[in-house]
Amino acid sequence: MKNKVLIKIITGVFVAIIVCFMIRTHILSPIIVYGASMSPTIHDNDRIIVDKLLYKMDDVERFEIIVFKADHTHNYIKRIIGLPGDYIEYRQNELYINGVQYAEPYLDKNVIKTRDFKLEDVANQYQVPEGSLFVMGDNREVSKDSRHFGFISKEDIVGNAKFIFWPDSLVDFFP
């Protein structure tokens, strides 16, 4: 009798561990943010949940916050600014996409002192190539982003950031 109870407990724990592993690997994953490139939206050492499964790579939206593979060992978290075919320009701390000025309410206007640039300054191209995205951090002054490393491939997207769960709160959702 005691052996049957012990086997059920061990089996239950084993199944729970496997389910948690599968959820973390394929559906939702917690990550720790290192650096200030996404301030004031996300801060250094914030913990966020990344949606890996339900996120449709073909359904990316402008201004969405994503996590993507920067190299074999590191992931970056940035905001999508340019979609395939877009022309990106930044003049006098104002964002222009395809010649239209966009408001960026998520930025701390007191901190931004970013040099002007056109997309050709970054990659000698006027448009974001098909299958690629142009991403930027919210803290434009310190962010290492597409202005530095160029476009990212949609295949490199890990998922989109859903919410901060530490230290802020479970209800701090992104737009």
Rank of each mutant, 00 (worst) to 15 (best):
I27H: 11
P84G: 08
K113L: 09
P40R: 11
Y34P: 00
D108W: 13
V13R: 11
L119R: 00
D44F: 13
I9T: 14
T11A: 14
Y55A: 01
N110D: 14
R115A: 10
K113E: 10
G35D: 02
N75D: 10
V100Y: 15
D71R: 07
F117K: 08
L53N: 08
Q101V: 12
Y34N: 03
R62V: 02
N45V: 02
I65F: 01
S29L: 10
V60A: 02
N45C: 05
P40L: 03
V5H: 06
M38H: 06
R47K: 13
L83M: 10
R79W: 09
C20I: 12
L54R: 07
V5E: 09
E89C: 02
V50D: 01
V19H: 10
V50G: 00
Q101E: 15
I9S: 14
K52A: 04
L6R: 14
H26F: 15
E89Q: 07
P40W: 05
V5F: 07
H43D: 12
R24W: 10
M57W: 04
L28M: 15
D116Y: 07
D116M: 06
Y76P: 00
V15D: 08
I27P: 07
K118Y: 09
I32L: 02
Y87D: 05
L28D: 13
I17N: 03
I42D: 07
I32S: 04
K109W: 10
T114S: 12
V33Q: 00
V50W: 01
F68K: 04
P40K: 04
N110F: 10
V60W: 00
K4G: 01
Y90P: 00
T73R: 08
K4H: 07
L28C: 14
K2M: 03
V111F: 11
V100D: 15
D121S: 04
S29A: 13
I9V: 13
M57V: 09
L53S: 12
D59V: 01
F117P: 03
K109A: 14
H43A: 12
P84D: 05
V33Y: 03
N98R: 14
R24C: 11
V19R: 08
T73F: 06
E61W: 01
K2H: 06
N45S: 12
F21V: 11
K2E: 05
T114Q: 11
R79A: 03
